[in-house]
C-alpha cells in the first residue's frame, strides 16, 4: 500500500477494548438478562392473559359499551380531582420558590443551607407521590387533603429543581449591577433574577400542573381523594363499563389540561 493510500484508508470498525470495558459490558448484560428472567411475564402467562382479555365474557368485552349512567357524579369527582391538582400544584410551586433560592449557588446565604435545600428537593422528588399520599393519609386521614399535601410535596421536588437550575443559568450581569449599587438580596432576586427566569418558571409551572393532574387521578387508589377512589371501587365491584367511563373522562381532563397549558406556553413564552 502506498503511503497516500494508507493515509486515506478508513479507520477500523471496532476499536480494541480494555478488560475493564469487557467486564462492564458483561455485568450490564447479566443485569438485564436476570431482571427479565426474574420479573417479566413468561410467554404462556401472556397468552392466557390475552385470552381472558379478549374472551366473549372477558374484561375488555365487559368494558364496552361504557356506562354513562353516573356521568354527573363522575363529573363532580373529576372536578374535585382537578381542584386537588390545582391546589397541590399551586401550593407546591409557591413553596418550591424559597427552596430553589436556597439551593442556588449565587443566592443561597450559606453553603450548608444550600446543601440542605438541595437535599430536601432531591428527597421530595425521589419519593413517589403515592408514597407521600399514604404518609399524609396517616397524618390527616383519608380524603382530598392528603392528596393535596402529597401533590404539594411532589411539586416542591419537581419545580424546586427546575427553578433552581433556571436561576443558576440566569444572566449574572444584572444581578452584579444591582449588587454593586448596594441592593439587598431580596431586591436582586425580585428585580433581576425572577424577571429573567419568568419564561422558564412559567413552563415549569405548567408542566407541574400537567403532572399534578395526572398524579391526582391515581392518588385516589390509595384513598387520597379524587376520581381514583371511584375508579378503584368500580374495578373492585367489577363495574368495568363504569370504570371505562371514568378512564375516558380522566383522559379528556388530562388532554384538556395539556392542550391548555401548551396554548398558554405558546402565548406567554
Amino acid at each position: 500500500m502506498t503511503p497516500s493510500l494508507a493515509r486515506s484508508a478508513p479507520p477500523p470498525r471496532f476499536q480494541h477494548r480494555s478488560l475493564a470495558e469487557y467486564v462492564g459490558i458483561i455485568v450490564v448484560l447479566a443485569l438485564v438478562i436476570t431482571s427479565v428472567v426474574n420479573t417479566a411475564p413468561p410467554l404462556d402467562t401472556l397468552q392466557r392473559g390475552a385470552a381472558r382479555l379478549f374472551a366473549p365474557s372477558g374484561f375488555l368485552m365487559q368494558m364496552f359499551p361504557p356506562d354513562f349512567t353516573h356521568v354527573d357524579r363522575i363529573f363532580w369527582k373529576l372536578l374535585e380531582t382537578l381542584q386537588m391538582a390545582v391546589a397541590g400544584a399551586a401550593l407546591g410551586l409557591i413553596c418550591a420558590v424559597p427552596f430553589a433560592i436556597l439551593a442556588t449557588d449565587r443566592l443561597s446565604p450559606h453553603p450548608l443551607i444550600k446543601t440542605a435545600a438541595r437535599g430536601c428537593i432531591a428527597f421530595f422528588r425521589t419519593v413517589p407521590d403515592l408514597v407521600w399520599a399514604i404518609f399524609f393519609i396517616i397524618v390527616v386521614g383519608l380524603g382530598p387533603a392528603a392528596g393535596v399535601l402529597a401533590l404539594m410535596i411532589d411539586k416542591i421536588g419537581f419545580a424546586g429543581r427546575f427553578f433552581a437550575e433556571a436561576m443558576e443559568e440566569a444572566d449574572t450581569g444584572p444581578q452584579d449591577a444591582l449588587r454593586a449599587i448596594g441592593a439587598s438580596r431580596m431586591g436582586i432576586i425580585f428585580s433581576a433574577v425572577f424577571p429573567a427566569c419568568l419564561p422558564s418558571f412559567t413552563a415549569t409551572s405548567l408542566f407541574a400542573l400537567e403532572k399534578s393532574v395526572r398524579g391526582s387521578a391515581a392518588l385516589g387508589l390509595v384513598g387520597a381523594g379524587g376520581i381514583g377512589v371511584d375508579l378503584k371501587v368500580a374495578f373492585d365491584l367489577f363495574n368495568y363499563d363504569e370504570a371505562l367511563t371514568i378512564i375516558l373522562m380522566m383522559l379528556i381532563l388530562v388532554v384538556g389540561v395539556e392542550q391548555g397549558s401548551s396554548w398558554i406556553r405558546r402565548k406567554l413564552i
Binding site: 450581569g173 444584572p174 452584579d176 449591577a177 454593586a180 449599587i181 428585580s191 433581576a192 424577571p195 429573567a196
Partner: peptide, 11 residues
C-alpha cells in the same frame, strides 16, 4: 457604576 455591558434586565 456604568458597565461595559449595560447589565439591564432585558425583559
Amino acid at each position: 457604576v456604568v458597565w461595559q455591558k449595560h447589565n439591564l434586565v432585558p425583559r
